[in-house]
Design a protein around this nucleic acid. Structure first.
Length: 447
RNA sequence: UCCGCGAUAGCUCAAUCGGCAGAGCAAGCGGCUGUUAACCGCAAGGUUGGAGGUUCGAGUCCUCCUCGCGGAGCCA
């Protein structure tokens, strides 16, 4: 048998006889010709069977082969501009076909399907070109995240999923039973990261997090992946420099390594090519002014041309606010110094202006919303204890957390980046549910 | 939790004012040596989400329920 190769290496084998292992994605025929579009996980190629080149039985088998049948085919690789595929431009002139399994009638066709049908068939939907491309982009984004952090002095230290208490309130936690005691699925690893910086200086955790929010929007999942870096001896200004380098590396690496997949997704990559440091920075105060000027002028935001509502200083932004602000810039924008009252208890107040804190969110362009939330953390034990009291949190539960400020405390900062929102942004998707293989949403636990 | 929209063939949808349930695709059969979601022909495909009501007559109107979609709040 000729050597088995993967389709992404097809260009290296023009003129040679090779064997491919994969699945029949699409078939069309014209009399004595059968065109089989075959995918193998690395790409897609058109295989052409001419009746005169194979046995009568083999040609008939090919002619009646259902899509998604698994097969092994051998033939000669030929460059042909007409040939579709990933990469396109090559086809296999088939001389042998082995059907591994003839597929049952496949539920998913190439025509349109509704969301519910596709989600019910997620286990099959993932085979489609579009979902394949998204999973490949996601894998590259995850690798870029890890590579950048590993190459910039960060040490991965895993944080627990089962936790005894809430980090930031208790309304959105999934409760589980820990041998008779209430335990909760983690919604952040940050507090543990703050432990770990005192060991390794720069750390990150990377894993699934859980939010039992009753959120039903294109930006929310119940289970999502978050990378949370935390840095000792780092103040807010330095944190933002790290974040913009990090995000730019992720975008540029993905552009470079997954160009074919982004093209398949019809992503306009000119938006992504601009993503290089520095990112614009505006204060919360400035953002509120921008919003209210826009509201007074009757500005609207895409995609539905909603009017931008006015807002008072002190509130958090709604979705149209975020979309409007992000829309004023051609790259992600930092909004810093949010009101202390709307942010988590551990954020460092601005000296001389305690009503705002040393926090910054990063808003992605094109309406993708907040992809990073970060801040400088409180470093003084007494200030932290006062904040814990002010938020009505039990001191006992946070004793170990306050201890970190008693034994060699330093300024330190960190942030969390939501992987699925980042994937949705880079891929240009209109819903986050396609960014993870098996999304867990408000009304979706299976498959 | 709240607001809005929806559920008809395996899939995507149509059905006028309340008056015979209809297309495309898929699956089946036949044809074609360059198809790109091929095309042409034939044949087949229905408990209109569920329960009740109004009516001579309900896919269509009313009530309740179930499920889904979009959004709000909250967040990454």
């Amino acid at each position: 048998m000729s050597p088995i190769i993967r389709i992404d290496k097809i260009a290296d084998h023009v003129g040679q006889e090779v064997t491919l292992q994969g699945w029949l994605q699409l078939k069309t025929g014209k009399g004595k010709l059968q065109f089989l579009r075959v995918r193998d996980g690395s790409g897609v190629i058109q295989a052409v069977i001419f009746k005169g080149n194979v046995s009568e039985e083999m040609f008939e088998a090919a002619k009646r082969l259902p899509i998604e049948s698994s097969l092994v085919i051998s033939g000669t690789v030929r460059a042909d501009e007409r040939a579709p595929g990933i990469p396109g431009g090559f086809e296999l002139d088939v001389n042998a076909l082995e059907v591994v399994q003839e597929s049952a009638e496949y539920p998913i066709g190439l025509k349109e399907h509704g969301v519910e049908f596709l989600m019910d068939h997620r286990h099959l939907w993932l085979r489609s070109n579009r979902q394949w491309a998204i999973m490949r982009v996601r894998a590259t984004i995850v690798k870029a995240i890890r590579d950048w952090l590993d190459n910039n002095g960060f040490t991965l230290v895993d944080t627990p999923i089962l936790t005894p208490s809430a980090a930031e309130g208790t309304t959105t936690l999934f409760k589980t039973d820990f041998h008779g005691e209430d335990a909760f699925l983690a919604q952040t690893g940050q507090l543990y990261n703050e432990v770990n910086i005192f060991s390794v200086g720069r750390t990150y955790c990377f894993g699934p997090t859980f939010r039992a929010e009753k959120s039903k929007t294109r930006r929310h999942l119940q289970e999502f992946w978050m990378v949370e870096p935390e840095i000792a001896f780092c103040k807010l200004e330095e944190l933002l420099e790290i974040e913009e380098q990090f995000v730019s590396y992720i975008v540029q690496t993905t552009l470079h390594e997954r160009a074919a997949e982004l093209k398949l997704l019809e992503r306009d990559t000119s938006f992504l090519e601009r993503i290089v440091p520095p990112f614009p920075r505006i204060s919360y105060d400035e953002a509120v002014e921008m919003i209210n000027r826009a509201a007074a002028a009757g500005a609207t935001v895409p995609p539905n041309d909603e009017p931008v509502p006015a807002m008072e200083w002190g509130g958090d932004f709604g979705a149209p606010h975020e979309t409007y602000i992000a829309g004023q810039f051609d790259r992600p924008v930092f909004v810093h110094h949010y009101p202390t009252a709307v942010k988590a208890f551990y954020m460092e107040p601005e000296p001389g202006r305690p009503e705002v804190c040393r926090s910054a969110d990063l808003l992605a362009p094109e309406g993708y919303g907040e992809i990073i939330g970060g801040s400088e953390r409180m470093s003084d034990p007494d200030v932290l204890l006062a904040a814990i009291d002010r938020h009505g949190l039990p001191r006992e539960a946070y004793e170990w957390y306050v201890d970190l400020r008693r034994y060699g405390s330093t300024p330190h900062s960190g942030f969390g980046l939501g992987v699925e929102r980042t994937v949705a942004w880079i891929c240009g998707l209109d819903h986050i549910r396609e960014t993870i293989a098996f999304p867990r949403m408000l009304n979706r636990l299976r498959p």
